[in-house]
Design a protein around this nucleic acid. Sequence first.
DNA 1: TTAGCATGAAAAA
DNA 2: TTTTCCTGCTAAT
Length: 335
Amino acid sequence: MPEGHSVHRIARQFGVNFVGTAPEVSSPQGRFAQGAAILNGREMTDARAVGKQMFLEFEGDHWLRVHLGIYGAWDFAGEVEIDPAIQIHTTKFGRGRLGQTGMAGVVEGPVDRAGEDSVASIGAPRRSRVARVHMAERDRAEATNGAFPPDPVGQVRVRLLTETVCADLRGPTACEVLTPAEVDAVVQRLGPDPANANTPEERQRFVDRARRKRTPIGLVLMDQSIIAGIGNVYRAEMLFRARLDPHTPANSLDPAVLEDLWDDWAHLLEIGITVGQMITIDGLEGEAYRRALAERDERHWVYKLEGTPCKRCGTNIVLEEFGARKLYWCPGCQL
DNA sequence: TTAGCATGAAAAA
DNA sequence: TTTTCCTGCTAAT
């Protein structure tokens, strides 16, 4: 269920935990047995994300492409080094307690991988070790008492295993081994991603692509070939922030409006990657910010808020079926 | 405890 | 346009 920010976070996690190692690669479920055999024992040399797709490079010009789709997820276990640049917010814990329930923060402190229950504390973002980190639409870190490596739970399509860390992939919509040329072809079909290059050139690439479309802007923002990484939540929230009627044809918009949309996506994406949540209401501080981390309704303007008064103008938020997806918007603000 | 839905996208029809 | 993937959250029970 993740949008672009989650995939970038997961790619960073692989950068920290796997790049430079030669993991054992298997497919407990069996459906990726052939691909696993190709990758097994090879050194991972790069981990990157473009939009909602992740690419892991292995020596010998083999790339693993993963797309999580609507319910895919990665689970890391063992000595998981948290990228110091990102925060893992923990709102729910397993049997081993890492901190106060409901408190947002960063898990810190070593957890013995042999399974001893140990205490980690909430503190400043630094190198951290936790026993289990679930990375999907929402991240979850917890201590466990289980053995390492853990028994595969459910349908594990791929397992990557080093001496100290294990990563399990479940429920992906895509998981395949590609050649460099095939990776290029996939990336070629994707629009620009500001998390990789927030440059005037890339912004212009988005503007040029969008301006050619008569399609409503509400659909254009979801089109991964025009701009990469935006999903249903960010789509709705960005349109609200820009005060745009989702039905407006993209080609009727002033290029400056499209430029602003790009800039806003870059801004929201950066927050999402760092914080691990889609915070689309800006500038919250203190208690309000804490509530935004804990409650979805507190961090969004319109998403899943149909029937409630708009936080800006008081008009009731509307839910509309739009391009086979649910669209939330404010008829008062979004003229 | 459980049933229905969902922060995608590709394949099938 | 419908089906598939077949997980996990959440509201309802």
